[in-house]
Design a protein around this nucleic acid. Structure first.
Lengths: 214, 214
DNA sequence: CGGGTTACTGACCCGCGGGTCAACAATAGG
DNA sequence: CCTATTGTTGACCCGCGGGTCAGTAACCCG
């Protein structure tokens, strides 16, 4: 028999790598710094990863795979009442922003990707855009967004607005109160693209009595 | 007397540098590639610039200085009629997007800044945000945006939406027809934050007869 | 033409950092 | 304890690319 590998080595390295990549980006991150933070030797890095780039890709791509699942999609079980829909929308936004906050280091990394790794940034934005497109289509299907609304363009504008919000969120030292932000953003989108029916539902949700649900 | 310096050397180098920085970013750009494209020797680069970084800063910072001046600001001579204001707004947006298109290489460079040069990206976005804030304040002052509208937050959302538009524009091989985009964006903002008076003016401008001005 | 001055060149220098691997360390079994 | 096996280490290797500068080139004037 022989020496047993430390089962936590890889995890320590991944954690340290994520931290250093977030602080410095791929180029600025040094393998020596990563291994120093993990409390290991420089050479051991290559027992776990083929190269620095490969480690970078593992950190970022696994996150991108996860965010695909995290992205709320319109389903068959969506409520029919506009006001209830708005509540669900806000709830899902809130959860997504929580997720982005919890993974703010990786999000920060991805937002800085360029060169050979610009595909990661593009994949991230594409996921956002496509999801937003799906939602615009859904709203139109429910007759709650105007027929004349161009899906792609509306999704672009909506994504842009939300992008700016989560960028501001993750740049903050402590998680800000994003609920209010998300409500204002929802208001802009509803008024900007929604039908009278949806706008009325929104207004009622803003001025109406609070929910009695558990 | 002595040998006369080539007066176009510096300009050739700056042009080549801008090109290579846009394609590769700062790190990916090699001095040897820049000088090769300028048709000069590698060493001559340092006759004009202290370092690669300094050349990078010259390219980007002079653009940022210019965009400050290019950014349309609410002035004393603004029209009073909401519909005329909307027209001026669109015109200014169009001019700004033209400017961004003409300088798309540098914009692309700046959007990719990180690390030591992240201040450039931040300065760019800050200029956009502050300008947007100024406009939100102006609209509120004219009674055309709701009193309850939070300037900072509205400016953030508006900037985000417009950011996404110019990013899409500069990523295109040929300049797209952004006029339609800008009109939709304006519509979203007006409906999202404007008063009934402004919304009516917007609707009239969309459905009304076309201008007869020269 | 020769001399003096400045512009330009590209071979070279050298620090940086990703990656390697021989030597050492840790572990289990006999 | 010794041996075999696998894990880990960090000194070292080496390519890359920013920057240097001695040598060469260009130019003007006497």
């Amino acid at each position: 028999m022989s020496r047993v590998a430390d089962p936590t080595s890889r995890i320590s390295l991944l954690r340290a790598a994520e931290e250093v990549f977030a602080e410095r980006g791929l180029i600025g991150a040094k393998v020596e710094e990563i291994t120093r933070r993990a409390g290991m030797s420089k050479g051991s890095f290559y027992l776990h990863f083929e190269s620095k780039e490969k480690a970078f890709e593992q950190v970022t791509e696994s996150f991108l795979a996860r965010i695909g699942a995290m992205m709320p999609k319109p389903g068959h079980d969506m409520p029919h009442e506009p006001r209830e829909l708005l509540r669900v929308w806000l709830e899902q936004d809130s959860q997504l922003f929580d997720f982005l906050w919890q993974n703010r280091a990786i999000v920060h990394i991805i937002l800085g990707c360029q060169g050979d790794h610009v595909y990661l940034l593009q994949a991230f934005f594409r996921a956002m855009q496509e999801n937003s497109c799906g939602w615009v289509r859904f709203w139109k299907g429910r007759g709650l967004f105007g027929d004349e609304v161009d899906e792609q363009l509306a999704a672009t504008l909506i994504c842009g607005a939300y992008n700016e919000l989560y960028k501001k969120m993750i740049a903050a030292p402590k998680k800000p109160e994003v609920e209010a932000w998300l409500r204002v953003a929802q208001g802009m989108v509803v008024r900007g693209f929604g039908t009278t029916k949806l706008i009325r539902a929104y207004d009622a949700s803003v001025h109406g009595a609070h929910g009695d649900t558990t």
